[in-house]
Design a protein around this nucleic acid. Sequence first.
DNA 1: TTCAGTTAAAGTCGATCTGACCCTAAGTCA
DNA 2: TGACTTAGGGTCAGATCGACTTTAACTGAA
Lengths: 249, 249
Amino acid sequence: MSTLFAGPFGANVSERAQLPPSLAISTVIFALKPSRDVGKPTLWLPLVRRVKEPFKGQWALPGGPLAATESLEDAARRNLRETTGLAPEYLEQLYAFGGLNRAHRPGQGSQRVVSIVYWALVRPTEAELLVEGEAEAENVAWHRADTAGDGEGGLAFDHREIIDYALWRLRSKLEYAQIAYHFLGETFTLAQLREVYEAVLGRPLDPANFRRQLKSVPQIEPTDQFLEGGKHRPPRLYRYTGPAQRSTT
Amino acid sequence: MSTLFAGPFGANVSERAQLPPSLAISTVIFALKPSRDVGKPTLWLPLVRRVKEPFKGQWALPGGPLAATESLEDAARRNLRETTGLAPEYLEQLYAFGGLNRAHRPGQGSQRVVSIVYWALVRPTEAELLVEGEAEAENVAWHRADTAGDGEGGLAFDHREIIDYALWRLRSKLEYAQIAYHFLGETFTLAQLREVYEAVLGRPLDPANFRRQLKSVPQIEPTDQFLEGGKHRPPRLYRYTGPAQRSTT
DNA sequence: TTCAGTTAAAGTCGATCTGACCCTAAGTCA
DNA sequence: TGACTTAGGGTCAGATCGACTTTAACTGAA
């Protein structure tokens, strides 16, 4: 035990600043959903409306405290399931945020909170379950990842910055790691996969070059099935056969 | 000072599991030092010998609890200074480790500890200060990053895995980010910079190709000075003029 | 003073990769 | 049947990379 540690238990209000920081887990949950205005899919994430101060009434990332008997990742998985009903296809730690002024509006005192944030990718089929199943559907809703909180006085805490950081991580990781499949179902066409890349990276990709690059990836196997029902030539369906989740960061 | 502290508040065993997890900060501090056997420089890091249970007598990463009034990064910077006398040239968050069984040997109960680990790069001139200045020099010593704890019954806690993860991050980041300069002084020759890359990546690099690649990086500016005193043609000194620390991860 | 040894620094060459573009195949719809 | 649209394959120029060669510049020993 260290001398730096101020006596923690039974502290009164004036000593609150001396309380050890409390730990919370939050998750940024990305899903690809068709946008209303454009036909192309865009990135969405579920947010939870706060029912108490601070930031009462504003939208925030789903999260909660860390229980004593679960690992960090288990905690992220649990509060993701509890708030949204989703089981993540892909889950990874994003960052630990521990600035001094993030738990409250400037000028108001409250206990220091350190948040360990995870980010997750889910499939659109899972993503549909959300609003239907939950009783408090009122207070859980999908928002566009890039504009969430824009016309509403902003998001709670520093959650807007956290989402931007998660977006940056998703974009850079997409370029060297094979994570795009986690947005899709078991089989998919190359055009669907390309739409994932275009939505995440925010720019169009040449279909022919995209195809050529993916053909050099052995983990993407062509099936002998084709997607029928389109207006045009039916595209071949592919399957991802690599490891479900990379261990690296 | 220790990274993780055992059973802290006099709680009895049955209550221990219900205590909120405590927070600690640790740092992996890399420096490039000439190895004794080979002439080439290799990666070293300072470790602290534990003076209490658990893992008494074994080597551990420097670290300590998070004070209530400092940010995570400030805490890392402070305990780095306190244990080694160093001010890091480069400092970045590595990961938050929060597994259930990391604070103790299997079978022994103790309080749950979540460690937020930072990693740092320091210059060799700074690195020399260490052993001289500190009174408890006995319990702080440099170890080779790749073999620390090998013949000594291992490192304390999960610190060997944490170091391996930090090594992996350093290697992958070296390949796309400009961080190698933080190991060197203000000016350096291209051969010195290449030695940094070779030591970190663990493989030789072609001097001519290395030079060609660096010439395309505008942040590396040639000075009009040359390193005299060598046995051969004096190499030109270069300077890094980019931002001191990238904001990205 | 000369020459051997060593490193600095620049250039060459073939293989590979990338982006932009074109062409044909195969389906749907009017 | 023919216009239209997407699938899927190919071409070509420029950039990059690894392996290698060549020349310049300095030191130290003969």
